[in-house]
Nucleic acid binder design. Structure first.
Lengths: 360, 360
DNA sequence: CTGTTAGCGCTTTCAG
DNA sequence: CTGAAAGCGCTAACAG
């Protein structure tokens, strides 16, 4: 029978307790300059003692607008699109909290990205949401050399030095890899041959995914024949499918660890391997839905890009507005298994812009 | 480069446009009595035309508190506990929105429940969150006979007549059943014998789960030997395990569609069937985690009770405060597959009270 | 470094 | 049925 909300304690109360003005209390609590260290301490102490909880609603009613920008690369992938939808969802949820988020599309190279970021920093933006572009390593390097002022960067599956970002949101690659391994293990008897097909191993997520996969492959006692990288380029994927099957014509299973595997799959079908090789893939996008329906792909590991976008936006807000601290610099989302039997739920998700994942 | 937030349009603007007071606009927009049909219409029309969006933050700053209660049965299950945590999470998220949620624990029978509900209705509560008690059918019947005034009921996996509740939140039983069927199908060759073990088939969720399972079993060409109900009673579950294996000593797989299957599993192990029969189960709770780790259970279908509680609370709030309409009377959450390889994520979830599922 | 004051957008008495 | 006015809790100038 516990009450879950006490009668509201306000800055007014704590000001009164201390015999000072509410303005000072507000300043202190929000970490503004211009408050003596001594009173600041007293304020924090009493706030804590009295059990004060700030009202976000009241705050955002008077606060000046926080400006965010989300930077997307041109030539948007299904993945980016989902991230974008997630950000839009978060914006909608935050609409009463006095934040604006500008979506911008930039040339897909680190130079263009760094310039845009610099510009935003100068334009007094408060925070930016960074979606992966090619050449992440370079971007990270450029970033070090710039003065971004107080601009806060939230990375979505993008590698940056830890001190250059507030946090990074991404899928739990290691677990995703293990899941793929376990699924192939249940599909195939011990000793069967499996390969890993991926985009670029330079990326940390892909590396972790690969690690998890290899780990599990060992547990499942499958025979690992090698990793094949196609750098997310359709032409390479095409050729690579041929090479892989030439080198291992008796291959039994493949884990397609990158979302950009359509070309690869198509080539597989052309070569008559449909149904002969067990496939576990990554992500859910229109073409993948078809592959699963047709039975070409047995399962896919959903990495929830929508939630990646949504969470990143929300966390950035909490960091900037509520002063939330992030001990864990990496926020890992749980990958989910999608089979034919639950495919419809994800199919719906892609279509349904208003989908209620609840994140809230 | 679109701005995602326009400069705020307030009731003040629409009052001015119409040459009336903001009070009237507020009343009309909130569906209060005491506004002539004519002005109400004009107000709605202009609000729409001007693209007015109410500010929830401003509203909840002045609104009087909404009172909710969540009614739990005594002798709480793991399931209830998770639901409870979800509700608490939602309350925390809504803390600035001027709602209070009282958690109450009631004897586990429909009579006690109906009395409590009636009491709450008289005490001017605005809404209640209903967690399943035994004898749901009776509760539904009793409910019809009472005058609950304006009390809004949100059901969590509880069957009520549609006009007696605002909505019901539950897991997508049909899909869960299909998923279990597909998993058994990949584990077992066509023609193998499988059984369904469940709690009570009277409940709608269980029925749908069973339907989905049977449907998929057919697709997988497995041999279905029958449904076994143990009414969630440990003693029955114990005996039933024996009966099932006596009737089908050559059984190959079982889908344990109810969370209360620990006794059943234990008996299975005692009888020496561990490893001989493939098991797919339901939900994730401490004991189930052990079963999966040990390999006794291959997979379990997570039904996300935490999110059921969280969503229900949030939706009730949206209904009561924001006037949200629910075309879909049933809100179905997506079941998730938990294997050994991703178990750690769910294990963590159970422990981590503050887990960020985002739902939000 | 600190206090005063004017709102933010809305709901709710209290008077008509 | 409608309007005036007093806040809800907080922030942001503006004065000290």
């Amino acid at each position: 029978m516990e009450e879950m909300r006490s009668t509201k304690l306000t800055i007014y109360d704590i000001a009164q307790e201390l015999g000072i003005s509410i303005a000072t209390v507000s300043r202190a609590l929000n970490g503004k300059e211009d408050v003596s260290e001594k009173t600041r301490e007293r304020i924090f102490e009493t706030a804590k003692r009295m059990g004060y909880k700030a009202s976000k609603t009241a705050a955002s009613l008077s606060r000046k607008e926080k400006k965010f920008a989300a930077i997307f690369p041109e030539l948007i992938h299904d993945y980016d699109n989902e991230v974008r939808r997630g950000i839009e969802k978060a914006v909608q949820e935050l609409q009463d909290y006095h934040v604006s988020v500008e979506m911008m599309t930039i040339k897909n190279n680190p130079e263009a990205f760094i310039e845009e970021i610099q510009t935003l920093a100068n334009k007094e933006y408060d925070g930016i949401l960074l979606i992966p572009c090619v050449g992440e390593a370079k971007l990270a390097e450029y970033l070090r050399q710039r003065d971004l002022g107080k601009l806060a960067i939230a990375a979505i599956t993008t590698e940056l030095a830890k001190d250059m970002r507030i946090f990074m949101v991404q899928s739990n690659g290691r677990v995703a890899g293990r899941m793929a391994g376990e699924l192939l293990g249940t599909l195939l008897n011990p000793g069967k041959k499996v390969a890993l097909v991926t985009g670029q191993m330079t990326s940390q997520v892909h590396q972790k995914t690969a690690e998890g996969f290899l780990e599990e492959i060992k547990v499942q006692k499958l025979d690992f024949v090698g990793t094949y990288e196609h750098y997310d380029q359709p032409s390479k994927a095409y050729i690579m499918a041929e090479r892989l099957l030439k080198e291992h014509p008796d291959l039994d299973g493949i884990y397609l660890a990158t979302a950009n595997s359509v070309t690869f799959c198509n080539r597989l079908v052309e070569m008559g391997y449909a149904g002969k090789i067990k496939l576990v893939a990554s992500d859910v996008f229109p073409k993948m839905i078809e592959f699963i329906k047709s039975g070409l792909v047995f399962a896919t590991i959903f990495q929830n890009p929508f939630n990646q976008g949504r969470l990143a936006t929300r966390y950035l807000f909490e960091y900037l507005v509520e002063g939330r601290e992030f001990e864990e610099d990496e926020v890992l989302l749980e990958p989910q298994i999608v089979l034919k039997s639950n495919l419809e739920l994800y199919e719906k998700k892609l279509l349904d812009v208003m989908s209620e994942d609840i994140l809230f």
